[in-house]
Write a protein that binds this DNA or RNA. Sequence first.
RNA 1: GAUUCCGUAGCUCAGUCGGUAGAGCACUUGACUUUUAAUCAAGUGGUCAUGGGUUCGAGCCCCAUCGGGAUCACCA
Length: 511
Amino acid sequence: MTEQELQRRETLGKLREMGIDPYPAEMFPVSHLASEILENYQEEVLEDGTKNRLNYQEVALAGRVMASREAGKALFMNLQDSSGRIQLYFRRDNFLDGDEAPMFDTVLKKLIDLGDYIGVKGYAFRTKTGETSIHVSEYKFLSKTLRPLPVVKTDAEGNVHDAFTDPELRYRMRYVDLTVNTSYREIFIKRSRLIRTMREYLDELGLLEVETPILQPIHGGAAARPFTTHHNTLDMTLYLRIANELYLKRLIVAGFDGVYEFAKMFRNEGMDRTHNPEFTALEFYVAYKDYNWMMEVTEQMLERVARALNAAGNATAQVEDQTINFAGPYRRLTMFDAIKEYTGINVETADEAELRTYCRSEHIHIDETMGKAKLIDEIFGEKVEHHLVQPTFLIDYPVEMSPLTKKHRSKPGLVERFELFVNGKEVANAYSELNDPIDQRERFEEQLRLAARGDEEAMAMDEDFIRALEYGMPPTAGIGFGIDRLAMLFTGQASIQEVLFFPQMRPESLH
RNA sequence: GAUUCCGUAGCUCAGUCGGUAGAGCACUUGACUUUUAAUCAAGUGGUCAUGGGUUCGAGCCCCAUCGGGAUCACCA
């Protein structure tokens, strides 16, 4: 234990010796938050120069002591609650017990450490330097902090000193991070509001919020490597879901007109600043609609989200030096037109050999197993994707890349699919759902052939899903959004770790 | 998984050519009844990530390991 930790354990013992419970059980009746008093406190100056305090003359607040400044027989503290920080003012005269003042000289000055929780009662006033404060008449010790918090200070010019910045420590000890770097709380409040706004919109559309299995015997609905686990009683392998798409479509078969789920997905793949092994998706499916309808819904929903998260109510988000406008309609660009625009290549007429030659000349990483569709996808990723900063629907993909998507109504070889790109990254993937069970079986069989050639991410055959389609699924539009990516966009963060409370980390050795 | 940078006090960081381990804040003691990055005075605090190696001598040079960041690969 460090010296400061030992000292705090000593003060803990001294509190007990004085009959003060460092971890009392009973509730403390909080009446106000710091920010409310700071914003609304009022006083008037009378003709004789004295002040008349107009409100908050009987308040009770609670929080952590984040700074303490002794000034002789006066003492100032900064109390931090969930809303912010307010200054406390204590005078020795208010805590006299005969000539002694143990609750001032001993407890306040010696036994309360930075980070400790206290509750105070008193009245609001303004000091002669103009700081709205609480004049404390009584206080109660609420909880002891045994480890020293990092002391982050901000000076008069707004410069932050000794900021707690080490990413490893911040992510491992998010409780410390959010205590001392309170501005990061705003990211998570916005993330919560993002989800709530989407949920409100979907509820207004009349969709049903549902839950589907996380433990799945067949990992379907996406191309990714799964986590594997084992169920003891059933003695069988189960997979943590990489997608919930096939279950949600079963519910459309079941007769619900629209279903949605905010779902944690798990993918056993690399980690970087846009990928965490578990992440959150919103998927929803609506009967009797197609992907054109879904584009309009996407525009409406994201515009509403943007306005809800923007302080001024604008439909924009700021990402570094880019201002992104979420007011619809968004640009719609076919995959082939996008490649033509940014490379000059007509992939519709080019054959596989021509695409290969182009890729080599542009140093795009390819291998011999890639077919024409995969080559198109690689060219798009290298040459087009990063240009799509403002929200753009990329539409009409080659059928080979989309085994769950309905064939295009008029363009042979393509499917009715779109992906939404914002700030050069994919944030949503949607299609007119494939509901032809015979076509679906052929698509799965094609996936099996890919798997046999060594494609680890090819989808497995799901006989029960085929059976469900054979019972009949109405024409349906479906979409999946990456919630973490959206949270990054709307909070201006470059790393997914900043929008997750507890990003995945290697284990830490704690003795 | 590959490459690369980083790891020194509770926090943020210095540390020269390889020669006794440093600063600010925090902490301890004292002064001060409207201070606010409070101030003033005096102090405490270190397995220099871990383990080897080279050397008379390693925070510094070499090797390995652990952890983190960035870039790449895979992916959303």
